[in-house]
Write a protein that binds this DNA or RNA. Structure first.
Lengths: 301, 301
DNA sequence: TGTATCTCATGCGTATTGAGCATGGCTCGA
DNA sequence: TCGAGCCATGCTCAATACGCATGAGATACA
């Protein structure tokens, strides 16, 4: 059964004439007659009584008309929704991102996106990169902001990665610190510092990625919350490591310095979608916002 | 857009493979590929991501799938309803009939019909024949029981008439009346009787149709209710006329006699539908019940 | 009463559509 | 590296759908 038949049927039912309905739809009377015949044959029912002046619905035709209208409405609604999805007047955007990306980059990008496309329902899930890989795979997330060091990227080969920038590791020093004026530091210069970290063992903190060499930080303060960590730094109790992505959230009485490139392998940040899968329009439209926000945030905005 | 496309689309979405969906529906993989392509082209959207092992819905495909299911369900529901209308497991039967037909004939037929087809919603409207002609024309009634004398039948030429029988006019006499034993009477024999009628002027009663000749009944009792009329007869106050259709409702102490054919033009009773219109299955099924009931009632059951 | 007119149905020829077959390209896994 | 499984596509043939022209039936009007 062709939906054209139903459209013709509906027009004839509304107008009451094969000829007139054909004229409205751009068919000849002959075509309308055949289409109605075909529909009647397929349904095994007579839908119209043919009178000398036009036609009228039979009881069966009246009953079927409601269903025909419903089916046409459904298809039209589907068409409309696809259009809305395309021009972003409907749909959703589910973003997954890791914690420090949510400090500034992702919220900023989402806010900017939402301002331009208010009809899209945006949502955000925080998690580690492997969680987001799984989320993309099972379809619970549309796009993920993930990160990886260059030697870990093969874990992401099921993804299409669009680079957003490099997330350097910074050292947070109290404003009065002897090294506070420096823009860039070597780890060796920090060998005697007292460190503040989220865990007592250096392997579980950012140190794990900083200088695999024999650098053994003295971790005297174990604090997990960012505000607490930076509070300790501000009070002059020690220094800590901060990813560049979170730099914007640092308080005034704490200063940041870059690490020498040799000491701090740079972590790459990507917007990721599933490789080989079509990218929803909302995601496609969101990516430029992510790129822009990444430039802002990583430039130290 | 062909509904076949939607069925194929739904099968592929459910199964996740062109080849397998084709197998289930009796198509080759090639046909499925083309149908999906055609659907995607018409919608201007990619519905599936083609992977090495089968396909998966895109976001657009997921959204559209709901509408496709809805449209298919609507059409299937329409098909089902037409089937139910045909086998009388759904639908309605709206009957129009004149008053005396509702004394026994129509209720009996409707009860019998309803016993066989309990799923059909039956309804009844009482009215005069012209009302029912209008009701049939405007579709508010499916079938009407109408009556007419042979010279009035041209008012019914917009109808298809199926004869149910002849509604003779009977004379009701008290059981002890001098003529009570007779099966058939002539009007002349009743010239001196006192008559009971619904209106004081003979023209507005059944007399209007009985013997247009110079018969001048003496109407001393004007009573409209049937029970009251027959009460008067039973009490010996006079005699009255009763249509054969109402004969079954006459009390025991009143006897009925036919009028000579020459004196009493017989009124024909018909089941009527609109000429040139298809007859709904419920009506078609109802007609035999009407015929049977008419035989019963008019035979004096 | 007869004719003109309006309606839908239908035979015919043509163009489009749709299915199957065979083939090719691609990806995954052994 | 190779085979298996899957989808895309060029090709061919049959079915379908359209428009044109015509026919049949009913109505309206002269």
């Amino acid at each position: 059964m062709d939906l054209t038949w139903l459209r013709v049927f509906e027009a004839v039912a509304r107008i009451g004439s094969f000829t007139a309905a054909g004229g409205e739809l751009g068919y000849t009377q002959s075509a309308v007659s055949r289409q109605i015949s075909a529909l009647e044959a397929e349904l095994g029912a007579v839908l119209f009584d043919r009178l000398a002046r036009g036609v009228v619905l039979t009881e069966e035709g009246r009953r079927f008309r409601a269903h025909a209208k419903g089916a046409l409405a459904q298809v039209d609604a589907g068409r409309r929704e696809l259009g809305e999805l395309r021009d972003l007047t409907a749909g959703r955007l589910r973003v997954g991102a890791f914690a420090t990306a949510n400090a500034a980059l992702v919220p900023r990008a989402m806010a900017a996106f939402q301002a331009v496309h208010p009809a899209v329902r945006v949502s955000l899930v925080e998690g580690r990169t492997p969680d987001h890989v799984a989320g993309l795979a099972d379809g619970s997330v549309d796009v993920a902001v993930v990160s990886g060091y260059t030697d870990q990227l093969d874990a992401l080969d099921a993804l299409d990665l669009r680079p957003l920038g490099a997330d350097a590791i910074l050292v947070a020093l109290p404003r009065g610190h002897r090294l506070a004026g420096r823009r860039r530091l070597g780890l060796a210069e920090l060998a005697d510092e007292v460190w503040i970290a989220g865990f007592p063992d250096a392997e579980r903190t950012l140190f794990a990625t900083v200088a695999g060499a024999g650098f053994e930080p003295r971790i005297d303060f174990v604090v997990q919350e960012w505000t607490a960590k930076l509070g300790c730094v501000a009070a002059g109790l020690g220094v800590t490591l901060v990813p560049a992505l979170a730099a914007g959230a640092v308080r005034d009485d704490v200063v940041l310095a870059e690490l020498e490139a040799a000491d701090a392998p740079v972590r790459a940040v990507f917007a990721a979608t599933l490789a080989g899968r079509s990218v929803p329009a909302a995601v496609e439209a969101f990516l430029p916002f992510l790129t822009t926000a990444a430039i802002d945030v990583l430039a130290g905005g």
